[in-house]
Design a binder for these strands. Structure first.
Lengths: 225, 225
DNA sequence: CTTCGACTATTAAAATTTTCATGTTGTATC
DNA sequence: GATACAACATGAAAATTTTAATAGTCGAAG
């Protein structure tokens, strides 16, 4: 996990870097926007901690650049106490969270962890189950190292099951997970049956095993055993 | 739709209030439990956004009061803690949903909308604009008192605009509002053009006025004047 | 005032999702 | 075990959404 810290107060910068460095993060430091932009060209960061009040300009512009270049990067904005506009503007422009100075390092750490959780950066972001691999970042699915094409619903269905190995998933959960608020379907779950059929078929057609177990009256389970 | 926001972090409070105020909600603010209880005596709220960590006590007690006095009020709990106990306790006592800090305002908004839909508030859920009427409860749209049939996307598109009269809506907002996370579309917004065409066509075909103004380079505006 | 490029409109086709009709399987009950 | 009923599977049609191709429109730059 690589983090870029953009902060002009050197003591704070070092404090953050030390603190985070102790938690297995790889930290790089920048004290100016210029430096930050320079580093951004060479590397991809998972997270950027961005103070928006910098000597050579406003961090908001940098935020824009970041989000254009690598929208998957999480940005945590650091701002002085009373700049609400900046905060809103930041969130509008895609910042993932904000924190107000002064703050405890523990607080920063918890924000970062929560950000990581939200971003689902878990490890390298690969989900594997036997011959099936999913790369959520690129929305790619491999079976026996060969890429297969899934529709949106099929993909989300598979992802939901593969992150809930061995658990019984009810049709209600599926509906809530894949359709959420759009309760504009008939009161039955016909469409789930259809998508299940299609997904199973597609997996088998591409040389995969059908790990779905139908749990009569309960739902489905994705399992090996 | 009247909302009471109980939150002691003033900047977050303002941010929420502004954000929701832009969506046709009438927001009132309280920074302490005392204030909140006071306001509750005088008014009835459709929804209460309740931070449970407050300077003068725990919001859970207030939740209990609310649910005793006006059980039809929807309560959305906000908590910094990711504590399961609080969550369960809250939901046990009748809270309708739960959101953990920090969160995106868009996320909050979608929770609220989902809450509204779930609660099926009766009475104050007619949205009118001249000859167009929408009854979200039954997902019904009337033009000149005659019902018309819209697809899901068309419906959400119209609803989004009609609750944001006179405001310029960017294509980015539309995409976020109608598609959310499913950024699985090409990088362009062709599909929005298509849906706009279809919606406009359908409205005109059914005797309605095309209130959509194209704001070149900006987006669209739904307006009378 | 013209020109050019970016933005928007429109239609048609392709892909996906949902519905529908029908057949099959599992489970409880007798 | 036989039966009945609900749950599930399946294929195909219908509806919707998305893509693609083409045409029209606006506004800035010269």
């Amino acid at each position: 996990m690589k983090i870029l810290i953009v902060e002009d107060e050197i003591e704070l910068l070092e404090a953050i870097s030390n603190y985070l460095g102790n938690s297995n993060f790889i930290c790089e430091k920048a004290m100016t926007l210029f430096e930050a932009e320079d580093k951004l060209i060479s590397f991809n960061y998972d997270i950027i901690i961005l103070d928006i009040n910098l000597p050579d300009g406003n961090g908001i512009d940098f935020l824009k650049t970041v989000k254009e270049q690598s929208p998957e990067t999480g940005v945590l904005i650091v701002s002085a106490k009373n700049s609400l506009e900046d905060k809103l503007k930041g969130l509008d422009l895609g910042a993932d969270d904000y924190i107000t100075k002064p703050f405890h390092l523990a607080e920063l750490n918890s924000r970062i962890n929560s950000l990581i959780r939200r971003k689902k950066f878990e490890g390298n972001n690969t989900i594997k189950f036997n011959e099936i691999e999913i790369y959520p970042d690129s929305r790619t699915v491999l079976i026996h190292d060969k890429q297969i094409t899934l529709t949106k619903k099929e993909y989300h269905l598979l992802l939901y099951f593969i992150t809930n190995i061995n658990k019984v998933i009810t049709k209600e959960s599926i509906a809530e997970h894949l359709w959420g608020d759009d309760i504009e379907m008939a009161s039955n779950y016909d469409f789930i049956y259809t998508h299940m059929v299609n997904l199973r078929k597609k997996i088998k057609k591409n040389g995969g095993t059908d790990y779905f177990r139908t749990m009569y009256g309960l739902g489905y389970k994705f399992t090996d055993s």
